[in-house]
Design a protein around this nucleic acid. Structure first.
Lengths: 138, 138
DNA sequence: ATCCTACATTGGACTAAGTCCAAGTCAAGA
DNA sequence: TCTTGACTTGGACTTAGTCCAATGTAGGAT
């Protein structure tokens, strides 16, 4: 985590208490909070933090590539701090749980030239949809 | 298109003027309108149609599998009437244009058992992101 | 150690996308 | 043609997110 703070400082970021707690909240594996969830957790440590600040900070983290924006369900966007290793997502249709997964091969290679319509393709986002073990039991 | 109306009638739908124009708007290839775009086009033919009716009709069409809901960008959902042939989407990052594409192979097969976390996987949604020829020239 | 100031934060108003509901309308079967 | 339950309406409401003027402060300059 402190390495993230270091990277931010290297970029000339002012290290405010607010940015610190947002960065702390976004620490860990399989973390995919919505902006409101980040705000709620950040407010646990720094009660007066404003929603606008959380949105600002998240947008900045996305802009510099430290956090990925994920919109799996057309509802609130989620923020994924794991940008070190490229990965895709596995989502439970019932409860919305998200796991990071690593499929084999390159999905971009599966798209034939004739299907590219002259686009310069940058990447492919894959979302696996299914039912998690907990929901299957329920 | 009238085959869609037939299928709806077979399901016991009341064929109102409103449902008719929504179905007509959603006719064609590479159609991916937002709810508001559907409403605007429908209102061209039936000026008094309410937004709520368009939302209702779209939800029903999605529920019975005649239309697919697509959320590529975390903004408004788009509605895709092409559900006969499974396909994925190619999106231009700049202008938002969407094309239907047909990648080779089954993306679900690319996910190793060890990466499935006990989920029962139903399908995979793939979004190719890139820049379309028009935007590349601009 | 303190001062400055450009950058950051705040909170409240605003927008976009979508949902909900009570009252009115109408498609289609009897 | 009548009836009725399904459908539509429009406006209020919710959720997610953006914007902005006023205020605060991190960190370099002195």
């Amino acid at each position: 985590m402190s390495d993230l703070l270091d990277r931010l400082r290297d970029r000339g970021w002012r290290l405010t208490a607010q940015r610190r707690v947002v960065a702390e909240v976004l620490d860990g594996d399989h973390v995919h909070y919505t902006a409101d969830e980040v705000h709620a957790r950040a407010a646990g440590r720094l009660p007066e933090i404003a929603r606008a600040t959380v949105y600002n900070t998240l947008s900045e983290l996305v802009a510099i590539g430290e956090v990925r924006e994920v919109s799996t369900d057309g509802r609130a966007k989620r923020y994924d701090p794991n940008t070190r290793h490229t990965h895709q997502h596995l989502v439970c249709e019932k409860c919305g749980t998200i796991r990071d997964v690593h499929p084999q091969g390159d999905p971009v290679a599966a798209l034939p030239e004739a299907e590219r319509y002259g686009f310069a393709i940058q990447d492919a986002v894959v979302t696996y949809r299914g039912t998690c073990p907990d929901c299957a039991r329920g």
